[in-house]
Simulated scan of single mutants.
Amino acid sequence: MSSGHAGGLLVVDTSSTLHVRLSGPPAPEDVGRLCALLEAAEPGLVVCEIGGLGRGGLGAVDALARLRLVARRRGHRLEFRGTGPELRELLGLVGLRELL
């Protein structure tokens, strides 16, 4: 099953591994929906493609940190894939490189 949204949340695949792709900077309501999805899902692997975030920004950093926190609380293994060098550098500057 997949669903689309005009904001930053593009695809949600509810197979055994949960796949999420961010196609752009997520709006606060997108992050809320993703967190609710993680809260409702059985613990397992969650793969989050974030190549669409590009350079990111502090909003992207906040979104990734929130997703990691919810995933950790629910027992998910969260993997971020497709991180660009600018976002990696920004995460390092704010002390959150371990998110990746």
Rank of each mutant, 00 (worst) to 15 (best):
L87Y: 11
E39V: 11
G7R: 10
V47S: 09
L78I: 12
R21G: 13
G54D: 07
E42G: 09
T83A: 15
L93H: 09
E86N: 08
L96H: 03
E39Y: 04
R33M: 03
P85E: 15
G52E: 05
P26C: 11
H76K: 08
G52P: 13
R88D: 14
L91W: 06
L99C: 06
G51F: 13
L90N: 06
P85N: 11
E86D: 15
H76L: 02
L64C: 00
S23E: 15
V12G: 02
M1C: 07
L69F: 01
P26G: 06
T14Y: 03
L22F: 14
I50K: 12
R77F: 10
L78N: 07
R97H: 14
H19N: 10
P43R: 10
P28T: 12
H19R: 13
H19T: 05
A36P: 05
L10C: 11
R73M: 07
L53F: 10
L64V: 03
C35F: 05
R33G: 01
L96P: 04
H19D: 12
D62P: 01
V20I: 15
R81I: 13
L99M: 01
L64M: 14
V46F: 09
G52N: 10
T17A: 14
P43C: 04
H5T: 14
R77E: 15
D62Q: 12
L64P: 06
L10W: 11
E49R: 13
A65G: 03
G32L: 14
G7P: 11
A27C: 00
L91E: 10
G75I: 08
G8S: 05
G7V: 02
S2F: 10
E79F: 00
C35Y: 00
H5N: 04
I50D: 05
R21E: 15
S3F: 05
G51E: 09
H5R: 15
C35E: 15
I50T: 04
S2Y: 01
R77P: 00
L67M: 15
L99N: 09
P25Y: 03
H19C: 05
L69P: 00
V70S: 00
R68Y: 07
E42H: 09
R72L: 11
V11R: 15
M1I: 02
L78W: 09
E49W: 04
G82F: 09
R66P: 03
R21W: 08
A6T: 10
R33S: 04
R55H: 14
R88C: 13
G75R: 05
A65K: 05
P85V: 11
P85Q: 13
E98T: 11
A41G: 10
E39L: 12
C48P: 07
A40V: 00
P85Y: 06
G95Q: 08
H76C: 06
A60M: 02
G75N: 01
A41D: 05
L37C: 10
V11C: 06
M1V: 04
E29L: 06
T17I: 13
P43E: 02
V70L: 08
A6E: 09
R55K: 10
V12T: 13
